[in-house]
Write a protein that binds this DNA or RNA. Structure first.
Length: 333
DNA sequence: TCTGGGGTCCTAGGACCC
DNA sequence: TCTGGGGTCCTAGGACCC
């Protein structure tokens, strides 16, 4: 079976500064060209599938990229740098080596793909970070072409089965990851960095309680529940420890999250530890429609859940941080 | 150019069950 | 009753991406 060739694009918007509103407007420009857009707000870039849009607009990838470049510049004064190619790996690599205001177009013939990929350094291949690049260079593999020619079993012994398969495929121009617009996140993290290294365990607990309250509220607002919670403690020397615990049932109920987070922190047994930051992550998110709350005979629990619903409404009406437990806000005297 | 934050995926090892 | 093997789940940590 063969699949029809795709044309994917990675575009970087070169904003004058962090401006989420402007970024949203630029995404609107892009979705005016193709609805198949995946946003990357962290660095103001986006991936897009141009395959259908090429037929709709009756042009080639260079023409479509130029439409985007001109509109972003004319409407918002923003420069773009774009890369296009037959898959996400090649589009990302092409964009990465393109200066602002320009585009790199890679064709979809085997010759085009090999000519683009093979001479490049392995570290330019998405999925090959500094650690893996060092490992490969010790084996004499420094270019994408050498990686493509290396025997897969040997790579698997060195890099592990899945990473080796992925690197080997991508080096040969194989990458069938689709563009998935609006994909729901699989986890949600909230963190707090202390102004100075914090030794007070009571303050650790209060901060953690505040984080879990915000996490619970955010999950309930997004109609999501979490199946597991992780706590990451970062110390003064920038090392960190993570502890994960699975919940008996998925929930977004703050008291349950707070109790679990408290247990995770206690399990680390921090005594006089210089803590620089705390982070809580809700893992394995699922839609709240799937919630199966075990019926209990505990009136207190039901009252807390009703109270939580009321407080969520107040928060949404005023400000996210306006309500929280007194314990989370009390400062050590 | 570097750093940090928030996210994903993978692996290894241990616990547990059948 | 004991042992061993295989499968599954959980957890910690590493590597990487944007």
């Amino acid at each position: 079976m063969t699949t029809s060739p795709r044309t994917l694009m990675r575009v970087h918007f070169h904003l004058p500064g962090p401006d989420p509103v402007l970024y949203e407007q630029l995404l609107d420009v892009l979705t005016g060209i193709t609805p198949q857009v995946e946003a990357h707000p962290a660095d103001f870039s986006a991936d897009a599938d141009l395959t259908g849009a090429l037929r709709y607009w009756g042009t080639d990838p260079a023409g479509l990229v130029d439409v985007l470049r001109l509109r972003a510049l004319a409407l918002y004064g923003v420069l773009t740098s774009s890369g296009t190619g037959p898959n996400r790996t090649i589009a990302a690599m092409a964009a990465a080596l393109t200066p602002p205001g320009a585009a790199t177009i890679v064709g979809n013939t085997p010759y085009d793909i090999a000519a683009f990929l093979r001479p490049r350094h392995v570290a330019a291949l998405p999925g090959i970070g500094p650690t893996t690049a060092r490992t490969l260079s010790r084996l004499g593999i420094t270019t994408v072409g050498e990686l493509a020619d290396a025997p897969l079993p040997a790579l698997q012994r060195i890099l592990g089965a899945a990473p080796a398969r992925q690197a080997h495929d991508r080096a040969r121009g194989i990458d069938d990851r689709p563009i998935t617009p609006g994909a729901a996140p699989r986890s949600l993290t909230l963190s707090h960095r202390f102004h100075a290294d914090e030794l007070d365990t009571d303050q650790h607990h209060r901060t953690l309680l505040g984080l879990t309250e915000r996490l619970g509220a955010a999950l309930r607002q997004d109609q999501q529940i979490t199946q597991a919670l992780s706590l990451t403690v970062t110390y003064a020397d920038r090392t960190h420890t993570t502890r994960t615990r699975t919940l008996p049932e998925a929930t977004a109920h703050t008291p349950v999250l707070a109790a679990l987070a408290r247990d995770l922190l206690a399990s680390l047994g921090l005594q006089r530890a210089r803590v620089r930051a705390l982070a809580v992550r809700a893992d394995r998110l699922q839609s709240a429609e799937h919630a199966v709350h075990q019926l209990t005979l505990d009136d207190q629990d039901d009252r807390l859940r009703r109270l939580e619903t009321v407080l969520d409404r107040v928060r949404s009406r005023y400000a996210p941080g306006i309500i929280g437990s007194a314990a989370a806000h009390r400062r050590a005297s």
